[in-house]
């Protein structure tokens, strides 16, 4: 199962689900509301959730999962030509 899948896919999944699990566990185990915790001077969810997880992590993964396979294909083609 999943034979031939680029290893970078599993690396990306580990990053995505790892970070999600860390933040969810932290939220559930925070005795007071997550609102009370500040990051960069504003309520923490606006930073780690609305910016980091929603925008940075998702864009990084979508870049990673097109850039790496493209580079591998290019490298293979160069090797074939040479």
């Amino acid at each position: 199962m999943f034979k031939g899948m680029h290893p970078v896919f599993w690396v990306g999944l580990a990053i995505m689900y790892g970070l999600t699990a860390i933040f969810m566990l932290w939220e559930i185990n925070t005795p007071q509301s997550t609102f009370q915790v500040k990051m960069l001077g504003v309520p923490a969810p606006f930073v780690y959730h609305a910016v980091f997880m929603l925008l940075i992590v998702s864009l990084f993964l979508s870049w990673l999962w097109y850039y790496v396979p493209e580079q591998i294909t290019k490298k293979r083609e160069q090797e074939r030509r040479s």
Binding site: M53, L61, S62
Partner: peptide, 14 residues
């Protein structure tokens, strides 16, 4: 909401 956007890149490989 975050899960929907995080799920989008999965499709590129899968």
């Amino acid at each position: 909401l975050t899960s929907i956007i995080l799920g989008m890149p999965i499709a590129s490989m899968l």
